[in-house]
Design a protein around this nucleic acid. Structure first.
Lengths: 234, 234
DNA sequence: CGTCCATTTGATCAGGGTCAAGACGAGTGG
DNA sequence: CCACTCGTCTTGACCCTGATCAAATGGACG
């Protein structure tokens, strides 16, 4: 790892509160790797040999059911940890992580986790805080799936992506990685057909603009109204 | 807390690996309380003043949406921790906890969490392991909600309850606390009407016996077949 | 015995899944 | 540079699951 890399990661959420020295000790034990688009960073059921920090790119975390159906659990953005099975007392990954675009990640051997948690308490606290918010996210999603209709779920999913990875463009906010109708369907528990119909309807109303594996939200505010169920159902 | 109480809790999952001395130090700082049926242990959005250990009874954890719909996140059984917002860096409870029957709980002031985590690393590790499994549960539930039909979701929910709190009876395994059709509906994202229809159908097939706020699973194996989708749809 | 809930059961209907076909666009090899 | 192919996306037609609406039944408990 070059010096440059270290200065880049010093500001990331998982490392808040750590000294430069501690940071160096941690990063010194990592190795970085490139993951090509559509390759796996780790795989469901696989032995949890490492945990990772995404430096660049976007990663899709997927659970596959015994009968082959896939659900997208979340997208990982640069600066986030992933594959932290060790922190939660697991020896195997509960999901697969697939690069949505070419990615760069840092990897640490899993056995270092207990050492890190003991030696750098802030790092542990930051991580558990993140686990907490992921648990909240998961519960929120259960609530959405239980109580909301498809259109609102899809609207919520788009807004979440826009907030997480949105990139300002002339026409609105673009989701910053290739995302298909099928992907959105797997995030919201519906079918690509329904997603397609919704997007074309919204495009006619001027809420979004979308193309092949590409979605731009042009009117986040109105989309939020729709997601919250106080939309003018025209 | 009497000596008896301490010996009772020494075997519980959160305290595995702790010495008797450490256990005493922890329990000594707790106070126990009784929560009457239908009373709240803590409330959604409320300031997280304490965290709790359920000693006796059963507690329902509920998230309420802005428009008043409720979703049952999980049931807590004796020996489990709850309300551990502090462990996850939160200052407010993300859900409400309602006593399903009269309960006895131990409560610690939230500010003790960091001390405990530092002084008793095994306790911290046990807790985070539990958080990890709850995160898995939540994701599993998202997957179920996305991919399974209602009958299979209800079957899964019943089996989960049976495994967690089942009590062997002559006729089968009884879910050990009062549970209504409405409750089951709120666990599975459906309506009490659909749950009622399913239960009567299953009763005719001899899979379950049910009454007012009472469900007994008489043939867990066949119910599992149904939950897994390899049932004889007769 | 009367009241209040939980539960059951029927009738209706719509949201959205499934099936089917085509259009469109991007990359590939000749 | 073009033709071809493959994967994504669109759109229509149909139908089923399960929600909604409505009403009656039945226990439990004061």
């Amino acid at each position: 790892m070059s010096r440059l890399d270290r200065s880049l990661i010093s500001g990331l959420a998982p490392f808040q509160g750590l000294t430069a020295v501690d940071l160096n000790r941690m990063v010194g034990q990592a190795h970085s790797l490139r993951i090509a688009k559509d390759e796996a960073v780790f795989e469901q059921e696989g032995e949890a040999h490492s945990f990772f920090l995404l430096l660049d790119g976007h990663v899709r975390v997927i659970r596959t059911t015994p009968d082959g159906q896939q659900v997208i659990v979340r997208y990982i953005s640069p600066g986030e940890l992933m594959g932290i099975a060790h922190a939660l007392g697991r020896t195997t990954y509960p999901a697969s992580a697939i690069a949505a675009v070419d990615c760069v990640v840092l990897a640490w051997p899993g056995r270092l986790w207990p050492e890190f948690a003991a030696a750098f308490p802030d790092f542990g606290a930051n991580t558990y805080k993140m686990v907490g918010s992921r648990l909240q996210d998961a519960h929120t999603r259960v609530v959405e799936m239980s109580t909301e209709q498809v259109d609102r779920r899809v609207a919520h999913a788009l807004l979440k992506l826009v907030n997480q990875t949105g990139r300002r463009m002339d026409e609105g906010v673009l989701i910053d990685f290739p995302i298909s109708r099928q992907d959105i369907a797997e995030m919201t528990g519906t079918t690509l057909h329904t997603v397609s119909r919704l997007l074309t309807a919204w495009e006619e109303q001027g809420l979004v603009k979308s193309g092949r594996q590409k979605v731009t939200v042009t009117e986040p505010h109105r989309l939020l109204m729709l997601a919250e169920g106080r939309a003018s159902k025209t």
